[in-house]
Design a protein around this nucleic acid. Sequence first.
DNA 1: AAGATGTTTGCAACCGGTTGCAAAATGCTC
DNA 2: GAGCATTTTGCAACCGGTTGCAAACATCTT
Lengths: 333, 333
Amino acid sequence: MAVTLKEVAERAGVSRSAVSRTFTEGASVSPKTRAKVEAAANELGYSPNALASSLTTGRTKLIGLVSNNFHNPLFLEVFDLFTRGLQDRGLRPLLVNLSHETDPANSVRMLRQYSVDGVIVASSTLPPSFAEAFRDAGVPVVHSFGRYTTSPHVHVVGIDNIACGRMAAEALIARGHKRVAFMGGPEGATSTQDRARGFFDALASHPEIEASVSYARAYSFDAGREEMARLLQSDPAEAYFGGDDVLSIGAMSAIADKGLRVPQDVGVIGLNDMAMARWQNINLTTIRQPVAEIIEASIDLVVGTIERPDRHPETRLFPCRVIERGTLRPCPT
Amino acid sequence: MAVTLKEVAERAGVSRSAVSRTFTEGASVSPKTRAKVEAAANELGYSPNALASSLTTGRTKLIGLVSNNFHNPLFLEVFDLFTRGLQDRGLRPLLVNLSHETDPANSVRMLRQYSVDGVIVASSTLPPSFAEAFRDAGVPVVHSFGRYTTSPHVHVVGIDNIACGRMAAEALIARGHKRVAFMGGPEGATSTQDRARGFFDALASHPEIEASVSYARAYSFDAGREEMARLLQSDPAEAYFGGDDVLSIGAMSAIADKGLRVPQDVGVIGLNDMAMARWQNINLTTIRQPVAEIIEASIDLVVGTIERPDRHPETRLFPCRVIERGTLRPCPT
DNA sequence: AAGATGTTTGCAACCGGTTGCAAAATGCTC
DNA sequence: GAGCATTTTGCAACCGGTTGCAAACATCTT
């Protein structure tokens, strides 16, 4: 079915090597043969088989894009940016949906079978050991939206979740709240753990402020709504740091159902700044995660590691900032 | 770096063929050699190179998943289901983000370079000619969420958008509305054209009902909001069929800002039933598109076409149904 | 015009597998 | 244990490319 090198070579009256070289960047071909080859290739509609060439070059230009966040609207933006960013560099994303899988062995084996040049693990909930399994298998890897560790074994790109937690606490303090709370995602998610830690760190120097914590069972609307409904049954806090935007939106839905107003009765600050947060009917005050920068850096890093595999593991953290909208009362002036 | 067939063969003391055959379904190997080979393979951590074998078998198990809908929350569900469904069948999705590209030539060339076994075009806005370009190149293809045509040139799986438009009109009529309107997505999108057609078809037999139409510039929150804000400046209809859920949610935001209530002052019915539609703070009455069934059928169809490439183009349309929630007043009894 | 230099070319081996074929091994029957 | 059918095995060619190497060719000196 497909046209091969050999057919082009015969038609152009040259050797197979000549054809191969015409399609290889920086190979030695005279303008004359190149012209002959290109003419023949056009007539036949030839384009080289990337997989066959990968056998000898050792490069497939395939990048495994591994994620378990297929229910978080932020990740639609993430996939959009990753696929575009990779395509712009001539790379192809091979998507792996982890869903409930937590053992990296299968993913590692599968992606090695396809000889991916590198892997990007895009997840804020997977443990660092997941990405490390790829490194151990000799596959260049970066953990995007991953957890910061002081002695990383793999490249990590993301935000400083501890700093974000702190930032959220400070935002609530600055608004004069005396009873605040952190409503996290699942307790096992690394991002939740870190955000909680930063949140309470910042509050440590404010003993006058009462703080509490609870965890939703998932980063989802329903979980946020349920958890907030539960919280509102007893004595709720004045303002909540929701571990994620969707969670916060769910929480706000429970607050509204209870007949309370946001931000007058209960304040909410989210995290992520997904597209939906700025919808006027949601208008969520939140902490913005610079998704585009994180993704750019992740791609740069994986490409860099492909070129120099022994490169030292690096952590790139991007600063977040509070986006003022309507779910937190203004700072007293 | 990677372990090869040859090394396993040497270690097991057998020929390369023997090793190949142990990893090939249904090949002839004695239990004894199989055991030797498996032992050696385990010790070395060998797993066969899928790309190399594809050279001779002609199968890569790669499926191109082509889409331009990276801003529609429904498509997060779509990608989730596609990736899982493909993985469950041992296939690997190679994701292609079309963004602004409308010429299929590049995608076709690229996916042929990677010898994908088949392609799924997942888009409700691309014209049929897009998928046809793959078929013309000899690549098995199905257009998922595509437009129904009476004499299809490629497999199409989706919904009957004309029937959906009709269903929406009937829902509004049943509720006793006398002034209704269709607020579509971009006028060029095939899905919008068909939904409009069905909507007005159904109204043709109800001359007493006044109907109007307008188009938002995109299937997005902002576009829906803008368009509805414009509509509300003059004399609005009693109830709107929004061409899509996100569009409808945007429209409702404009309605709320104007101080009008849904459904008492203005009714809204959407289309898709994306996860968000059932969020209690949105609670959108909408027409449900059976996404999971569409995706299952798409995968079945592309797999079937890979096995029998000359298979006659087929159209599989799935029935939609109205999901009653809170944005349309109840039917008078 | 011969020699030195640089460029272009084809040969042949290789990348990591698969597979048709014939030889070797095995299992059965008598 | 010979004779036969059946299964298992290895050889060698092939899939569609790339690349080191040496020969062929072109270009430039002197």
